[in-house]
């Protein structure tokens, strides 16, 4: 009985299991091997030992630039996105009328394809005739070159990302709605104010969704590619200030065919994400209420 159940179980998960070995585990190991070669996508791969890693860490300013760009985008953009999404959810959770309409309005931007939304924002932030500068100059405020400015390109990409904060909002909203109202009523009896209830009931009771959004937000942020590719015409400009990590990885692999070198970059990305995820679980994991299995 048990034995045959095990067989049936493996038959059911077979598609994923095969996929795991073909598209994840196998490629991981293979790319580790490739990262020690000079493979170019064509011809033979030659073993070069740690050469790729040595060059990346000691002799590749673009690697550090890409790493810094990604770090900057993540460390500012992810917390901002979390706060905006949470704020929208808290506002909607106050038993407002037309809640469904507001929720749709805030959620809809997050389904817009990244290419389409990037093109739209290019138009909005166009320095000469874009509406952003038009509004700023109407109020006699300083204008900007936005996506064409070395200093502003990343902040502008962050502003663009906030338009999609409604995706996280939906998850927060479900979390907020599952907080038992008896907790608030008990706190009210104790004379707790709004701020107190927010910090001592709302936030802790929704810590699982905040944590989920944090982890997913960080992983998504590390992967930023499409928006930067579109706004910079595929070159990471101005002056590599929008060359994010995956963008650089893509260029090395598929523009310059340095497959071995790019594999080393991929493995460094993997290790970075692993470390960041483990740190998050170490810091927040224990404090978070998590309903994991039956």
């Amino acid at each position: 009985m048990t034995k045959s159940r095990t067989f049936v179980f493996y038959m059911f998960i077979l598609p994923w299991l095969l996929g795991f070995f073909i598209f994840t585990a196998g490629p991981m190991i293979y790319s580790l091997y490739m990262s020690f070669t000079d493979y170019s996508g064509f011809g033979e791969a030659h073993w070069v030992g740690l050469e790729n890693y040595k060059k990346i860490f000691t002799d590749d300013p673009l690697f550090w630039q890409a790493l810094w760009n990604t770090f900057f985008y993540t460390i500012i953009g992810v917390p901002l996105g979390l706060v905006v999404g949470y704020m929208l959810a808290v506002l909607l959770n106050t038993k407002v009328k037309f809640m469904g309409i507001f929720r749709t309005i805030f959620y809809l931007p997050s389904i817009v394809p990244a290419v389409a939304s990037s093109l739209l924002w290019i138009l909005i932030f166009q320095p000469e005739f874009g509406i952003a500068n038009a509004i700023l100059s109407f109020f006699h405020l300083p204008t900007s070159n936005w996506l064409l400015s070395e200093a502003m390109v990343k902040p502008t990409l962050i502003i663009m990302s906030l338009w999609g904060a409604g995706g996280g909002m939906v998850i927060y909203l479900a979390g907020l709605q599952s907080v038992p109202s008896s907790l608030y009523e008990a706190a009210e009896l104790d004379g707790a104010g709004k701020w107190h209830k927010f910090w001592h009931i709302t936030v802790p009771m929704t810590s699982n969704v905040i944590f989920f959004n944090l982890i997913m937000g960080l992983i998504g942020s590390f992967q930023i590619f499409t928006q930067a590719y579109v706004v910079s015409n595929g070159n990471g400009g101005p002056n590599y200030k929008s060359l994010f990590y995956v963008f650089y990885l893509y260029q090395e692999a598929f523009k310059f065919f340095k497959m071995g070198y790019a594999s080393a970059l991929a493995w460094i990305l993997f290790v970075i994400i692993l470390i960041v995820t483990v740190i998050q679980f170490k810091i927040f994991g224990k404090k978070v209420y998590y309903e994991f299995d039956e």
Binding site: T2, R5, V8, I13
Partner: peptide, 30 residues
């Protein structure tokens, strides 16, 4: 379906959710 190793493979599944596809992009392309 309670088969041997289910919890292990489920943990692996959850772990792969955190793996960016770009990490395996090059070998998969090949």
């Amino acid at each position: 379906i309670k088969g041997k190793g289910r919890d292990f493979w489920f943990a692996v599944l959850l772990a792969t959710m955190m793996l960016p596809p770009q990490v395996t992009m090059i070998p998969v392309y090949m």
